[in-house]
Amino acid sequence: MIDQLPEGKSIGWMQAPPQWIFTHTVRFIGVVRVVIQDGEGFILIKKGKPLMYFFKHGRIELRGHAALDYFNSHPTIEFNLCKYTPEEFAHALKICDVEENQPEPAEMQEQAPVAPAREEAAEEPAAELQEMSPAEHLPAELRETPEPEREIPGTPVPEIPVAAVPVKPVAAVTERVFVPQPAVLEDPDIKIIGQIKKLNGIVAISVFNDDRNILLMGDVEIEPLLKIARTMLATADKITPVLYWGSFVHMTLQIPEGNVIIAPYHENHLCILTTRTINIGHIRRILRDLQQDRSQGIRL
């Protein structure tokens, strides 16, 4: 899908928190091409309104809130703003099978952090941005260590003040700034989660921690599911210190509609939603293997 999109006019590569994109594109029509490690994706945007989220890593494809969640799981992401002409934009809409004037997909409306930020930005975007120096838009850690060599000199930005950290095109980047990302999953993790998601009967799989959802694959509302997962985790936390039965492997709650499974995963947790017909024994073996690999110090 990414390859089919019109190229557009590149405004420049940048590095910024994902939320920056939504608060600084109120006059932008085009595509934001996102690169995270070896994967790539995009956000199709019309004047601050995201019309489609997409991310692909190998054979794993994330769409909608799953892709957005993955973007949001990174403190900063690297992206290229590519402006579209009306014709290019119409072509992109067709490729993405999105209607220009349709309301935001329900799955996107669930993303609370996105909508309010966009609305705030829509009130007085230009004035607000003109009053601030570019450095004021940067995350604190980046303001403290500016990298002037990453700037693209002479890049005209007529409609979007480039307030994030501009970076060179990926091919030209020789050094990268590695921001500590404790809650970010590595590529093999995403691959493993993707493989579990592909098993028969798996409706959705999430990696979450105490604060938030880190990765979601599957078409479900994440917040209600996480609420249940955290309740189950609280139960497991209550009983684990009392029992001397070894380390906690998983807890599975079965209801007539299906199963909810929680399990430790590195410093985070997995939550798996399955149909009733799932082979629990198979899932159980996978979860045990994940834990054994972890205890043996093998990086998954």
Binding site: P224, K227, I228, T231, M232, A234, T235, A236, K238, I239, T240, L243, W245, G246, S247, F248, V249, H250, M251, T252, L253, Q254, I255, P256, E257, I280, R284, L287, R288, Q291
Partner: peptide, 23 residues
């Protein structure tokens, strides 16, 4: 706890709970 958690699924009834440790 499990009865309460199951109720969060639109008042679903609890069919089974399975908790596994390494031993």
């Amino acid at each position: 706890d499990s009865k309460k958690t199951a109720a969060q699924f639109g008042n679903a009834s609890l069919s089974m709970v399975f908790i596994e440790f390494s031993d």
